[in-house]
Design a protein around this nucleic acid. Structure first.
Lengths: 332, 332
DNA sequence: TTGTAAGCGTTATCAA
DNA sequence: TTGATAACGCTTACAA
């Protein structure tokens, strides 16, 4: 392994000068800088990140904890976060939490071990009252879903407004018996309750009553669960002409489940999702959905962690992503 | 920050004994071990990975370089790799290469900086003649696609056999004019040429001729490109009753493109993909596809890197993943 | 503008 | 079975 000492000897300077060149610090004459750069080139030297980290206390790595990286939405998110972090000179290590509170707490504890400089946590299972482990020593930014009442920096989804707009759109299209396929209600405000609330608000604003028979609470927010929800709705005998799904992934399952029962979208039932995953545009029929600005969210989250890494203190920041309602075939 | 020294003082032993306990090394009396563990618990001590790495030369991190983490197939792959690596006590850092040779070479060079213990590279753009940078100093395992003629450890897809089976299945279903929607042919053996070859082999084995008008070479293997391919086929006026798509992602685009032109699957055209991404089962109609054993591949790849990390030398290993042909609605 | 010295937290080595 | 000592490669603080 080639060290700074080797380069220093080769260039005929001290280790410190090499360090200054490597880190682009001022106060090195052009001539010496050139000589050092040449020695680096010639020797194929690369800094030893561990040594730098040990000494400086910074790793240059941001952790990103997501439930499962193979769900389209989190893949999308990760891609954006990796891009944005790269722009700021950080690398990203991904943790899979499994969406359980356990895994998410592990991620917080683990990042300690891994010595991230900061953690972006896309929490879904964590209880809203959770407090950050007192001595984490690095900033945590919450991304997307769960709301922790201002105790963390937070980049939130437009959960309520988005679902409200989606529901209002179904109503404008003539739907009157609109189902809501969503997750399990747990205490506190979270993605599920907020989106459900947006649905209720829209119904209320248009003088419609929510029929409890048209509410499906899923244990998991997966395609498989969405499919079953559609089966349950179709088999219940209750009339329905619209479905508001809590996520695009669930919506894809619903779409499939409706097809299983011979219900046509949008002729018999109109369907709207949430997230605008890349697949939405390619489903048959293509899926209308709430499209939060994912790049914006990732940029904001990275900006927040990086900001905190540089200046840890100060009041927490709360952002809500802008969104657009994308209208496709499923609500034509 | 709490260090080993702190724990040592707390437990009334030396740093070295703490180190031995932390690393589960033999030769520590039960009594002392218990005392140290308790001190660790009480103080909330966590090892400093940078210091350990600096001293031991190992980072405990495996790099995974994929084109884009938001494509379903790579998300699936990453999830498996993260799982498997975790089982062996490694963490995974994901690099996005963008599928360009540049990015892939960057990933190799970068992992140097990042000090991975090893790299799993899912290369698609890299030229088959590429040699590993001579002084990488850590093992590289190729996963999935490109073939490098035995110069790297390699876990390959059943590209040729899988596509051959898929094509034979279409023929058995009565298809006679089968299109192949695939990527751009570049020199050497790669995922595209191998899969195309499997298609040709199956046609030949059943006495069918390949019609060049039914071959579509896509610049990108995306949903958007698949959709356009379907448009081109439908608009060409050439009859076709089956499509072999190079990946499920492309197949999803084809499915969408056929729907755009009012062609029904499987009634007018039968369609088969490759990969068995989670979405395949939920498409409308659900997609028949070649299902390589992804968990097996990830396990093998991790096993290979970890093996090389422990014993760097010896002849390279070549594996081909087992597969299954999953028959769904798109070829009923 | 450049160099020297010390030490970050861990583990390998060897001695007790 | 346990402990003292010396690195690992780098950067902070300060001296020249």
């Amino acid at each position: 392994m080639i060290t700074m000492g080797d380069v220093a000897r080769l260039a005929g300077v001290s280790k410190m000068t090499v360090s200054n060149v490597v880190n682009n610090r001022a106060g090195v004459s052009d001539q010496v800088r050139r000589r050092v750069l040449e020695a680096i080139e010639r020797s194929g030297y690369r800094v030893n990140v561990s040594a730098r980290t040990l000494r400086s206390g910074r790793t240059g790595v941001i952790g990103l904890a997501v439930p499962e990286i193979d769900r389209p939405y989190f893949g999308l998110l990760a891609a954006h976060v990796i891009d944005q972090a790269g722009r700021q000179g950080f690398h990203v290590a991904i943790e899979q939490t499994g969406g359980a509170a356990d895994g998410e707490i592990d991620a917080i504890a683990h990042s300690h071990t891994l010595q991230f400089d900061g953690l972006i946590l896309s929490a879904v299972g964590l209880h809203p009252d959770t407090r950050p482990p007192a001595e984490t020593g690095y900033p945590i930014v919450m991304l997307g879903e769960q709301d922790f009442g201002g105790r963390f920096d937070h980049v939130a989804m437009p959960n309520e407004d988005g679902t409200r707009a989606a529901t209002a759109h179904l109503i404008a299209r003539g739907c009157r018996r609109i189902a809501n396929v969503t997750g399990r209600f747990s205490q506190g405000l979270n993605v599920v309750t907020r989106r459900h609330h947006g649905y209720l608000t829209a119904l209320g604003e248009h003088g419609l009553e929510a029929d409890p028979a048209l509410l499906v609470n899923l244990g998991e927010m997966t395609m498989a669960a969405g499919r079953e929800a559609a089966h349950r709705l179709a088999d219940s005998g209750r009339a329905f002409d619209g479905v508001v799904a809590v996520t695009d992934t669930v919506a894809q399952g619903v779409l499939r489940g409706l097809a299983d029962r011979g219900l046509r979208v949008p002729d018999d039932v109109r369907l709207v999702g949430f997230d605008d995953v890349p697949e939405a545009e390619y489903m048959v029929p293509s899926l209308s959905t709430v499209a939060p600005d994912h790049a914006w969210m990732a940029a904001r989250a990275v900006e927040l962690v990086v900001g905190r890494i540089q200046a840890p203190l100060g009041p927490t920041d709360q952002h809500v992503a802008p969104f657009e309602l994308v209208i496709r075939e499923s609500t034509r």
